[in-house]
Simulated assay, not measured.
Amino acid sequence: MTSTPGVILAGGKATRMGGGDKGLKRVAGERLIDRVIARLGPQCAPLAINANGDPARFAEFGLPVLPDSLPDHPGPLAGVLAGLDWAAGLGAASIVTVAADTPFFPADLVARLQAAAGPSGLALAASRDDTGKLWQHPTFGLWPVALRNDLRAALEGGLRKIVLWTDRHEAGIAEFPSDPFDPFFNINTPEDIAEAERLIA
């Protein structure tokens, strides 16, 4: 099977962290994005980063930096669309996306997303909380390039909520265990950095 391109979604504004790039914040001495690249690299190739603003701040990673193609930062789906447009140029059939602020996502993420793909080839990751409620993690997904024009039209029409669009296309769900902790734990605040360092230790 040919490898699937991977896109790291780093386009958020990190307002709860005081601004800047969350992916460049350090956890236990290592930048979040380094941890994400190390986790995604064995699962996907090639890799790219979705980010807006000056791409030079990511130059050292040697990866393409894909800005949103739509104005006003319409959210993670714009990053997905940028990734799909990039992958179309590579002749790829799909991409996998991950968030730049989630350092513990599963090492078998891509294989399990592919196994869970719905009829359109779309799949999202999910995990259960302590009460048994299933939470989708829509920044972690398998996205078919064939749907990129539909996604563009939806975004241009004002759609912002990822699951409204993924439900429309019958996305499959890859459920991951939350024991000993949720692998999709993401870092939004300085307190989250402290928690991540505790988990790493």
Rank of each mutant, 00 (worst) to 15 (best):
A126Q: 00
A126F: 01
L155C: 00
L147S: 08
W135A: 12
L134M: 12
A146H: 11
T139C: 09
W143A: 05
D129F: 05
S127K: 02
A126R: 00
W135M: 05
P138Y: 12
R152T: 09
K133D: 09
W143V: 06
L147E: 12
K133H: 12
R128Y: 11
H137N: 13
D150H: 10
K133F: 11
S127A: 15
G132V: 01
G157A: 15
D129Q: 02
V145C: 02
R148A: 15
T131P: 00
L142Q: 13
D130T: 03
V145N: 04
A146K: 11
T139I: 14
R148N: 08
G141N: 03
D129L: 10
T139W: 13
N149C: 11
R148C: 13
R148F: 05
R152H: 11
L134V: 09
W143R: 10
A153F: 08
G141C: 12
A126N: 00
P144W: 09
D130P: 01
G132I: 00
A146R: 15
W135N: 08
D129T: 14
G157T: 13
R152G: 03
L155I: 10
D130F: 07
A146P: 09
A154F: 05
K133P: 03
A154S: 09
L155R: 01
G141M: 10
T139M: 15
L151P: 00
A153D: 14
A154T: 00
L151G: 03
L142I: 06
E156N: 12
T139E: 04
Q136V: 11
L155G: 01
R152S: 12
T139P: 02
G157L: 04
P144V: 01
F140L: 05
A153L: 11
N149I: 04
W143T: 13
F140G: 07
V145D: 04
Q136P: 05
P144N: 09
T139F: 07
L147Q: 05
L142C: 09
F140D: 03
L151S: 06
G132E: 07
R152A: 13
L147G: 13
Q136E: 04
D129K: 05
A126L: 01
L155K: 07
E156D: 14
T139V: 15
K133N: 03
F140C: 06
R148I: 11
D150S: 10
F140E: 00
R152F: 09
L147K: 06
E156C: 10
Q136I: 08
G157Q: 05
L142R: 15
A146L: 05
R148L: 11
G132Y: 02
W135I: 05
P144D: 12
G141P: 07
E156T: 12
L147V: 09
L151V: 10
G157R: 12
D150I: 02
D150N: 13
R148S: 11
D129E: 13
G132D: 03
L151M: 08
A126H: 00
F140A: 07
T131G: 15
R128P: 05
G141E: 01
R128F: 14
F140K: 06
L134Y: 06
H137M: 09
A126I: 02
N149M: 07
T139L: 13
L142N: 05
W135H: 15
R152P: 04
D130Q: 13
P144K: 10
S127F: 06
L142E: 09
L142G: 03
W135F: 14
W143H: 15
P138G: 15
